[in-house]
Amino acid sequence: MLEIRDLHKHLGGKHVLRGVNLTVPTGEALVIIGGSGCGKSVLLKHILGLFKPDSGQVLVDGEDTVPLPERELFRVRKRFGMLFQGGALFDSMTVADNVSFALDEHSKLPASEKLAIVQKKLAVVGLKGVEKVYPADLSGGMKKRVALARAIAADPDFLLYDEPTTGLDPIMSDVINELIVKLKTTLNVTTIVVTHDMASARKIADKMAMLHEGTIRIHATPDELYASDDDVVKRFINGLASVEQMKEVWGEEAEKRMAK
């Protein structure tokens, strides 16, 4: 179980997280949505201890990881897999070495077995024959999928995905959605997904949460969220600009455009 309690964080003089509270029971998938730059990636990094909050708690199966020193955190992080928004592949290593990184570092498996795992994980994200390629020679979508394979390579208990389907074609996106659901249901992985893709949110989510101005605006099942009459939530789901934003773009004509 993952619990986030009253998390606060200032970054670059901005109060990014202003008291975030969330609970994700074991084996459940939470989808986090929210405007660009509202702090979703920062929130994920807090769960792994990559950022130290100004105040608040992050509980991993009941253990508060915030006060732990970096060396203790390594123990906790071995149970996590994280897909970074930009992939964050090691560009001095081949695809195969990237995917098997956690296995090479933390397991004593023989090389042949590790290779088999690497090939299997690459196959589930739809990649074959790229083992010896360096990340610089991959397309954006391929990088994302290699990063996903790296995140799931060591069969973690918790998986954090930062925009797993951004930059993928619709079919590949659906494959990745199914993979996330399969990992959750078959391996009972506790999952948090940040996404802007409402179709994939629908598919993956047991619960959804919207991060807005540094706090959780709504935390509910997808059906409840879609039925919400909160204006902020409604506009986000339907992808509609606010009156102020329309005025920025259209100036005087804003009213006319919105009437349409």
Binding site: L48, R71, F74, R75, R77, K78, F84, A88, F90, D91
Partner: peptide
Amino acid sequence: AEIGTMHVTEQVDALRALATN
């Protein structure tokens, strides 16, 4: 330049996320 690029592209964070110092 190498470590700086790794830092800026979150590769250093990825190392930490993969439980490596």
